Computed example of a mutant assay.
Amino acid sequence: MKRFAGALLIILLSGCQIDPYTFSPTWTGTDWYDAGIEDAIAGYAVKDNDMLADTFNDPEVDRAQYLKGYAEGQRKTCQQDLAYARGLAGKTFPASCDTVENVSEIRSAWQKGADEGAGTIRLN
């Protein structure tokens, strides 16, 4: 009976083994639109194709989609109130906003926030 219980235990435990390849994700390629949005929101300047291929380990760069996403990220990020808050928090001016039309207004809002943020640090 002990042999039977031991054999049954071994069979049950081996049945609980998980195959590590069952749940592996499949590679679908890079979403260049999202990559552009993320770069612009993070404040990065536009990357060239070689840098993108190296960063995402994908030589098939879709430049048009990347630039569309980058423009969308700029639209979301390069706003005066966000630049002011970024300056207030002591963060640098985002390089992604250097190429927008109203860069001077955005930069002055950021500078105002940076000056106010530096003033509150000195008071503490």
Rank of each mutant, 00 (worst) to 15 (best):
M1V: 02
R3E: 08
L8D: 10
L9Q: 02
I11R: 04
I11Q: 04
L12M: 12
L12W: 06
L13P: 08
S14M: 08
G15S: 14
Q17P: 00
Q17G: 07
T22D: 08
S24G: 01
S24V: 11
P25G: 09
P25R: 02
T28K: 14
G29P: 11
G29W: 03
D31E: 08
D31F: 00
D31W: 02
Y33V: 03
D34P: 00
G36A: 10
E38K: 08
I41H: 05
A45Q: 15
D48N: 15
N49A: 15
N49S: 15
D50C: 03
D50I: 12
M51K: 14
M51S: 14
T55I: 12
T55G: 10
N57L: 06
D62F: 12
R63G: 01
R63Y: 10
Y66E: 04
Y66H: 08
A71H: 11
G73A: 07
G73R: 00
Q74A: 10
K76Y: 11
Q79L: 07
Q80P: 02
L82T: 04
L82H: 03
R86I: 08
R86A: 11
G87T: 03
A95I: 03
D98F: 07
V100I: 15
V100D: 05
N102R: 04
S104Y: 00
I106P: 08
R107S: 10
S108R: 06
A109K: 10
W110Y: 11
Q111M: 02
Q111T: 08
G113N: 06
A118F: 09
A118T: 13
A118E: 13
G119N: 14
I121D: 09
R122Y: 10
L123Q: 12
